[in-house]
Design a protein around this nucleic acid. Sequence first.
RNA 1: GUGGAUGUAGCUCAGUUGGUUAGAGCGCCGGAUUGUGAUUCCGGAGGUCGCCGGUUCAAGCCCGGUCUUCCACCCCA
Length: 459
Amino acid sequence: MAQKPSTPKGTRDFSPQEMLRRKYIFNTIETVFRKYGFLPLETPAMENLSTLTGKYGEEGDRLIFKVLNSGDAWKSVSSEVKAMLVKGEEVHPGKLAAELSDKALRYDLTVPFARYVVQHQNELTFPFKRYQVQPVWRADRPQKGRYREFYQCDADVIGSKSLLNEIELVQLIDDIFTALDMKVTVKINDRKVLSAIAEISGQPEKVVDMVTAIDKLDKIGQEKVEEEMRAKGITDTAISTIAPLFRLSGTWPEQKNKLDDWLGNVPVAQEGLKSLSTIFDAVGNLKSATLEFDPTLARGLDYYTGAIFEVKANEGTMPGSICGGGRYDDLTGIFGLKDMSGVGISFGADRIYDVLLETEKFPAELGQSTRLLFANFGESEAMHCFKLLRQLRDAGIAAELYPDQVKMAKQFKYADDKGIPFVAIIGENELKQGIVTVKDMKNGEQKAVKAEELLSIIS
RNA sequence: GUGGAUGUAGCUCAGUUGGUUAGAGCGCCGGAUUGUGAUUCCGGAGGUCGCCGGUUCAAGCCCGGUCUUCCACCCCA
């Protein structure tokens, strides 16, 4: 019995038309990456499970796709766990998964990159700048703009603490969205400012809870944020200490003044504020992006330590961010390489695609690949077309010959469906007279020309 | 992972309180005499109503399970 074909949940096929548009996004991003001195890198789809676990927070670990051990996976389960299962005792799902699986699909491109850097540290010249455009997988529940397989386009600099890198990343973001004709808002914050806030609240150990609650401010409002913090065991005193955070509106200089008054005497805050100021001052005029300090921007990934970025589209209905990144001081430390600070940015190609589609920003000419189609009138005519075909292709023109001798209507329809702008007709008559009849598919006009003139007509 | 909605021809959807051969538009295929698409006219093919099970004399319609897609939460690109 034939089974109904489908792709797994949250994964998609990409048609030729979609691929042309996706390639346009990838090419645009890659071109800008190269302009800033980043070089390409690829890593395997799978990593050792231990490379990935514990890097993305508790929530992140749950979303990692684990790969079942090949062969008899049951054999890799320890006798201790087997005994528990036989007795019907409950085994912690994470523990069981770790025994059945020692590989997993990568969850992002940053952690594999850190692994790569440590593994190849002796071959690399630092600061090391790489870009990487590959799919990542998350076992999330699909939604609008959320897929289980999607592409990230990352650029990272590792082995440099200089803020020039952050500044360049903001400019790079601006360049890319300018090239894509998108207006965006780049939100920026610094984890150090967030730590300082947790510190003055008197409950520094609650940074993560505070930050994830604060992150929701624009969505659920101050009251609910405070409610959530209380639920997480943050004291009322601490919450009222944090309150000035909710009144940090205005331009960056205004925000900076308020922050200086409030957090000025906390050393870690000063560090964060100073680097934010440096970034704001040095970035200069941006073409498509608006840079905004957002004190509620937190970002869930555990490894960020300094500046953090997030980019949202100003047009369209995409709810999530289309780009995100930040500085991580010690991502390589877990793999045994200390003192290797890095900073990077990740573009979500699939979400950018969705925004461009919705706002109709894809260039119209992307659909055209073939410029000219030779209609097929039979063997000898086709052989003649073959020669012309070669000349056109040598001249850099995309052209094709319809492979079968079928009725004209079908051949013209093929050209029409494929968006081919010109059709060349060489039948018995044309062959005899040594001419080519060229039809412009847009206006239906048709004229007979010499073979030598063909190129100038269609280009 | 939690809660809610959805699923009928390739696509977008109709389908009345369960009752004979399940419909439309678009698309597809064929035709309207010679070598012409997109337009027009005529004709045709295509569905075990997501899948499995149950209730019933009878189920696209009711019930349970399962999968998909979508929405909210969580989180994120």
